[in-house]
Simulated scan of single mutants.
Amino acid sequence: MEPTAASSAQPIDLQEKFAQFSDTWSPKVIARLNDYEIKLARLDGEFVWHSHADTDELFLVIAGNLTIQLEPADGGAVELRAGQLYVVPRGVRHCPKADGEVLAMLIEPAGVVNTGDAGGELTASYDDSLAG
């Protein structure tokens, strides 16, 4: 069996990975865990309102402050600072918003599109160039 990034003997340095890209709202796959992808993203400004019908979405803030805007019926908004995470349940419409740059980790099933059901110009191309 050929080793993968997740099974190699070398740790993954998050700051080193973040230093390799500067574009925002364009998650980069850095590792795989079973059928899930571990992604890093730089966030700045407001994203688009969207949902993911088939999966939850985990946001872990590494640096900065992130607001996960939710529909009023789902709680309105969740404020996250460095070291905090939030799981957006499947099917819940949400809109991440960063006042200033945020470094975040996302954990999602392989192939999840960042804009979910919204599509549009902020839909990121699949990028696993940092995965190994």
Rank of each mutant, 00 (worst) to 15 (best):
A6H: 10
S7G: 10
S7L: 11
S8T: 07
S8N: 06
S8E: 01
A9E: 12
Q10A: 12
Q10Y: 07
Q10K: 09
Q10T: 09
Q10F: 10
I12M: 08
I12V: 12
D13P: 03
D13N: 12
L14C: 08
L14I: 13
Q15M: 14
Q15T: 07
E16A: 15
F18N: 08
F18S: 07
Q20F: 07
F21V: 02
S22A: 14
S22W: 05
D23M: 08
D23I: 10
T24L: 14
T24Y: 09
W25K: 03
S26N: 15
S26P: 09
P27L: 04
P27E: 13
K28W: 09
V29W: 06
I30F: 14
R32Y: 10
R32I: 04
L33K: 11
N34Q: 07
D35N: 13
Y36P: 10
I38F: 13
K39A: 10
R42P: 15
L43R: 00
G45K: 01
E46Q: 09
F47R: 01
F47N: 04
W49K: 00
W49F: 03
H50Y: 01
H50P: 08
H50E: 08
H52C: 07
A53D: 14
A53N: 00
A53C: 01
A53M: 01
D54M: 04
D54W: 02
D56F: 02
E57H: 07
L58P: 05
L58T: 07
L60W: 10
V61H: 03
N65G: 07
L66T: 01
L66M: 05
T67Q: 02
T67S: 04
I68G: 03
I68K: 00
L70A: 10
L70T: 01
P72T: 02
G75Q: 03
G75D: 06
G75C: 06
G76Q: 01
A77L: 04
E79P: 00
L80N: 02
L80S: 02
L80R: 04
R81K: 11
A82Q: 04
G83L: 02
G83C: 01
G83Q: 01
Q84D: 08
L85E: 03
L85M: 13
L85C: 10
Y86A: 02
Y86I: 03
V88T: 06
V88W: 05
P89M: 00
R90M: 07
G91S: 07
V92G: 02
H94C: 01
C95M: 10
P96G: 03
K97S: 13
A98L: 06
A98M: 07
D99K: 09
D99S: 14
G100E: 09
G100V: 08
G100R: 09
E101T: 15
A104Y: 00
L106G: 13
L106Q: 11
I107E: 12
I107L: 15
P109M: 13
A110E: 13
G111A: 12
T115A: 12
G116A: 06
G116L: 02
A118P: 13
A118W: 10
A118D: 14
G119R: 00
G120P: 15
G120E: 13
A124Q: 11
S125M: 05
Y126H: 14
Y126D: 15
Y126L: 15
D127M: 08
S129Y: 07
